[in-house]
Simulated scan of single mutants.
Amino acid sequence: MMKSVATMMIVGVYAGLSFGGDFERGTFSYPIRCGWTMGKALLSKILVFVVFMAFAIILFPICAVAWCTLTNGWGASFTPAEAASFFVMLVSLMVLAASTAMVPVLVSVATRSSAAAIAISLGVTLLQMPVLNGASGLAAAHFLPFGAMWFVAKGDMSPLYGVMLGVVWSIVLYAVCTAILEKTDMK
């Protein structure tokens, strides 16, 4: 769990530096001045950021699987059902990672400050820890993508539920970011 927390802190810091910094430097408005809508500019930046962050978040588990395979051998070969199950779990973890990365994006859009985005993102990550490690951790993970990642990886939550939760969070947070930007003059 500690690697997951460290990874989420890195996500918060990177989002603050990337998104918050773009607002501070005024570089976020460049595509808008060139004719893009705010929604398209935000979506393109989010897609690049979320793909990179999902990869960064999944990197630890992939390395752990590779290391385990190298040290312990391949073991029994995969059946098609096991390969499909592994693929669905990987997709679930990637979608949940993407939705988790949307939280610091929202903070960056709302505050337009890299320092505030980093501080609030780190605070949100740390505030989730007692809830997810408590007696009601699994129940809370049904609503929090960061917790759902942990329980999907452990096999305590359906990967399909994880995909649905991640998609819902991503759509809602993108809609909120877009609503905030629509009320802002970006010129």
Rank of each mutant, 00 (worst) to 15 (best):
181 L>M: 10
8 M>E: 11
2 M>F: 11
44 S>R: 12
174 Y>V: 08
68 C>D: 13
37 T>D: 11
112 R>H: 14
44 S>W: 14
180 I>P: 04
75 G>V: 06
105 V>S: 09
37 T>E: 13
57 I>Y: 07
21 G>A: 08
34 C>P: 00
96 L>T: 01
110 A>C: 08
92 S>K: 08
42 L>W: 11
165 L>W: 10
133 N>L: 13
76 A>G: 08
56 A>V: 14
131 V>N: 04
83 A>Y: 10
38 M>S: 14
64 A>S: 15
141 A>C: 04
44 S>D: 09
67 W>M: 06
16 G>E: 03
51 V>N: 03
102 M>R: 06
173 L>W: 04
28 F>T: 02
141 A>W: 10
169 W>Y: 15
140 A>Y: 14
115 A>P: 02
26 G>A: 11
172 V>S: 06
160 L>H: 05
53 M>V: 12
40 K>L: 09
145 P>S: 01
118 I>Y: 07
57 I>N: 07
77 S>L: 12
56 A>S: 07
39 G>Q: 13
109 V>T: 10
157 M>T: 04
79 T>V: 01
31 P>K: 04
25 R>S: 15
65 V>Q: 10
122 L>H: 05
147 G>H: 01
55 F>T: 04
148 A>Y: 02
63 C>A: 14
75 G>I: 08
137 G>R: 01
159 P>D: 07
181 L>K: 07
53 M>R: 06
63 C>E: 01
110 A>F: 10
76 A>H: 08
180 I>G: 04
70 L>T: 06
72 N>K: 11
106 L>H: 03
42 L>Y: 13
137 G>L: 12
135 A>I: 08
11 V>I: 15
102 M>L: 12
159 P>C: 05
155 G>K: 05
94 M>D: 00
38 M>G: 08
152 V>D: 03
81 A>T: 05
148 A>L: 08
149 M>G: 07
23 F>H: 13
114 S>M: 14
158 S>V: 03
25 R>T: 15
91 V>G: 01
94 M>G: 11
43 L>N: 06
59 L>G: 04
45 K>E: 11
53 M>A: 12
59 L>N: 01
107 V>H: 06
7 T>C: 06
78 F>P: 03
74 W>F: 14
57 I>T: 13
62 I>K: 00
37 T>F: 05
181 L>I: 02
138 L>Q: 12
93 L>A: 01
19 F>R: 01
168 V>P: 02
177 C>W: 02
39 G>L: 02
67 W>A: 11
95 V>C: 03
185 D>W: 03
114 S>R: 09
165 L>H: 02
170 S>N: 04
65 V>S: 09
70 L>S: 06
10 I>R: 09
124 V>E: 03
108 S>P: 10
14 Y>D: 00
68 C>K: 13
73 G>K: 04
182 E>K: 15
56 A>D: 00
76 A>Q: 14
55 F>M: 09
145 P>Y: 08
140 A>H: 10
60 F>N: 06
26 G>D: 10
125 T>A: 00
148 A>D: 07
2 M>G: 07
63 C>D: 00
125 T>W: 00
96 L>A: 02
16 G>A: 06
18 S>H: 13
93 L>Y: 03
167 V>T: 12
49 F>C: 02
